[in-house]
Write a protein that binds this DNA or RNA. Structure first.
Lengths: 160, 160
DNA sequence: GCCATATCTCTCATTTACTAAGATAAATAG
DNA sequence: CTATTTATCTTAGTAAATGAGAGATATGGC
């Protein structure tokens, strides 16, 4: 229905509708993260940070600080909170004993993953309705938009 | 290139690549918002909230609280901060004098819009390369994913 | 119309989490 | 071995959220 209607519009009109649709969807994504965090009982930046560690593998406090833009003191507190909930654990780095490696306790994060799966299922259902070509278009767009976003973030943060 | 490669893959493989691409792109979107907020001199939830009011038109404090999940006390402080920067103004609601309408001062947010426009331009350039049908696919996806996100957020917050 | 109740925003005390500065400990360079 | 650098943690101060509740206005039953 949306598809049928949209397919009769000109490119310009479609682009005009896409921008706000993206904004809305991304705002809803933020709300989703917040809602999950509330259920889990952590604040949403802690949850994002947990995801980050999961994505990048065991990380030192300094790496986390650099990636998140937090100060070292804030990261100490963040790890303390996640550790108190048994979601991560601190490990000594064998090579450099100043470092503290933070590792996600994958055996303890099952319930968090379960909170994400209804969304993943819904999104999966939407994606299942697309052709291979349509999926390729979506993938292309997300990869390219991710790149320009990161480039712009670097521009905004770096000097200027 | 990404397109060419992707178009030769099976649907399953494409979906498998899409999920992380979406996560990355959305994480980059969060970083972008934070970087802009820092430039503007507000915290990032205040900026998101400003965007929300702009998107939905003049809103009462209660509506903002409901949409953001903040408490009424937090919303008062949030509006105070935005008002102090002259980015919004409080107006009495003529019909219900308990209510306070918050309106974005569109004449004062130009510099903020300017910070977003390089990104919009880059995204626009990406979109310009797609056919009408491809744009329709993207629009369809963003509209539908926005809907399922909001539905899931409601489910997470409402009871259960 | 009047009263009880509900709704809406704001206030205030408390709590949470961040920053900035600096202390501590370990690694590395000279 | 000493000086410097690197990495994390500690602490004091600050910003912003929560939760409880006050004050003002609206609404529905009588």
């Amino acid at each position: 229905m949306a598809t049928k209607k949209a397919s009769q519009e000109g490119k310009q009109a479609l682009v005009g509708r896409l921008m706000p649709a993206m904004r809305r969807s991304s705002a809803a994504g933020v709300l989703h993260g917040q809602a999950i965090a509330k259920k889990v009982g952590v604040n949403s930046s802690d949850l994002e940070c947990l995801d980050l560690i999961l994505l990048n593998g065991p990380s030192t406090a300094g790496e986390i600080a650099r990636r998140t833009g937090l100060t070292s003191g804030a990261v100490t507190g963040l790890i303390d909170r996640l550790e108190r909930l048994d979601l991560v654990e601190r490990m000594a780095d064998a090579n450099d004993r100043r470092k503290v490696l933070v590792r996600v306790r994958e055996d303890k994060i099952g319930p968090i993953g379960a909170l994400f799966s209804p969304l993943e299922k819904s999104i999966g259902a939407i994606l299942a309705g697309y052709s291979r070509e349509e999926l390729a278009t979506l993938l292309d767009f997300f990869e390219r938009s991710g790149e320009v976003l990161l480039a712009r973030v670097a521009e905004l943060n770096g000097g200027k």
